[in-house]
Design a binder for these strands. Structure first.
Lengths: 201, 201, 201, 201
DNA sequence: CATGAATGAGAATTCATTCAT
DNA sequence: AATGAATGAATTCTCATTCAT
């Protein structure tokens, strides 16, 4: 990477990191581009060399953060020796819940700013490996396990929503239960869901 | 209702209806109070006699619309002769899905303007009968059926999220499946969830 | 006129007068809306209640000023007892030249800011009497004199351009001659032009 | 011309041509230096190696285009065998009208971007032959014909304005007449004007 | 010479809110 | 109660110009 390219990357990161903090502390609506650039210690005009508006920054952030979460979970999965499909999914969910539980700021950001549409779109476009989305990766997991899942997309979608929504109130407010209890309820349900989607040839 | 009271009700309705359309068409962010009052054919200053700001209008709308949905579903349930708890829940879910499917504008409003937090908060505060929230009502249903549910709040919460999120893409975009197929997948899962929450004394 | 209407008229006038001075002193390009409103002693936002942008103010000014000039000239013509068409035109041109010569600020404004298109469009839309444009009025003058002019529009157009363009350099810079000399050259040419447009039945 | 010199010429031309198109399409006000250089496929900073600002480009363009027009007309005049002064002027006017009629883009540029002052100034400074302005050249024409013109500058000025302004609406919009009709009206008037400026010794 | 990323002053514009009528 | 003109702070966005590479 040339020195200029490196510098540009640094600037973009500064903008994005500054925005992340401000979005969490005050919400997007109450964060101005001037605020972002002041915190990033860059000129206001520089913002427009990198992003169209603050909503583009938000979308970029969602994708970036979600990608990191998934990459971590998958990395951990690779180091384990789990072979069954349902166990793999549970492993990933468990890992994601733990990550979010250790990074409440991130969880707050996600639940404060995201409408369903944005998140859904993001999940489908998260690149995990080279040219492979998170959705592709899960499909591959199923195949390796020799299972055939009817409507994998819908299964993932349901699990994602379930995890996402329950995680928010449980991790941030311990409501209606604490995280360990949630897992006890959630995992059997997820396993059940997976089985009900398995093709019975 | 006195003539003056009636007139005030008419004005409030005009504001709320105008806002509803504009929120759907342009989103809350891009709807100004001036816009709302122009469409409502009232003076700008009049807005502040009824609401503090546009977010109060949004919250009022959510509650009003959600209440209507629930009232309709519960009304229909009363006219049926279902006795088992799980069947009752399925009946309500089925009814809600049908209502939303027949009122896509409303569904659009919910998915375009609502973050998870707002909707969740609303559901917990929906008054169904006199001084009784939707949550209270469901609890009563369980009791009548002689079942005891561990963590009813969480069960409702999970079901609500599942229904809400899947409804959006299925009804608006027939993605990943059409509504009848969704129901075929969804109902067994919900029944399963309910059973796994039933106290096994 | 109600008090509010009167007040609005006063504000519009304040904006327009402030703009007129600033446009002359610094040109349109270097006059900001903030400048205009500061000089008018009104809030910046008030500008947009009366005009879309500063170019709309310019166009409004052109029309207003040109209308005044014509109204004055026609008023004077009415008080005279000239009967022949060509003499009437000369009278109007003479009067306009004198007015501009006595109001160099106005002349400067016109020649500094106007492209041909804007002025042409304005002349054709100047209302002189009720629902009657300057062009209509001239046509009527011709009819009263019993003359028939081929292509009156073009004749007026040529005269207007000739007067306008020569007036500028002569009145402001006495270049290439002084005003009385200009008139001596200009009037015979105009009379000649009129005659060459008179229908020879 | 050295290769480096040639390269610089090419770049200047690219800038000027890009600006020409953009000035016509969007007007000067709405053309930025960034726009010009993007279309010219050169770096923004390069602009300042050739011009001070966009108004310098405009002035350069006016001079360049006007010079070409006049050079063409005079070249054609030299190839003819007209001897009388008034016929020569008519020849030039006729030729200019034809050129503009065949190059409406150029005409549009002139009428969209130019105020009277800029064009007037340009005409007086157009170099036709070595160190000789268009004005000088016309004076020479008069002398050759043995005529003496009072106030040649004013005559030229009047003719120029008349031609310029009528050409615009006639050629671009066929309003109020078509070009051949315009010529029929215009030429006698011009001849008349010339004669009325001829010194009657 | 040429580049184009970065700058930051400054222009346009919006809009919630107030208040005299 | 209702109105809507007026406000001016806040925000977005543009763009000429500089300068390190």
């Amino acid at each position: 990477m040339g020195k200029i390219e490196e510098n540009k990357k640094k600037k973009k990161d500064a903008i994005v990191n500054s925005a992340f903090t401000l979005f969490i502390d005050h919400g997007i609506k109450d964060t101005s581009i001037a605020d972002i650039m002041k915190k990033a210690e860059l000129a206001k005009g520089t913002f427009y060399l990198y992003f169209k508006d603050k909503y583009e920054v938000r979308d970029y952030l969602v994708r970036k953060k979600a990608t990191q979460l998934f990459e971590n979970a998958i990395e951990a999965l690779k180091e384990s020796d789990i072979t069954e499909f349902d166990k793999k999914i549970i492993f990933i969910v468990d890992n994601l819940l733990d990550q979010l539980s250790n990074n409440k700021i991130l969880l707050k950001f996600i639940s404060k700013n995201l409408s369903w549409g944005i998140l859904r779109n993001s999940i489908e476009n998260i690149p995990v490996n080279e040219g492979e989305s998170a959705a592709d990766y899960i499909e591959q997991l199923a195949e390796e396990s020799g299972k055939h899942i009817r409507n994998l997309e819908m299964l993932i979608f349901m699990i994602a929503e379930l995890v996402n929504s329950t995680a928010h109130s449980v991790i941030l407010y311990q409501q209606p239960v604490e995280l360990p209890e949630l897992k006890k309820e959630l995992f059997p349900i997820i396993i059940n869901m997976i089985h009900s989607f398995e093709e019975t040839c």
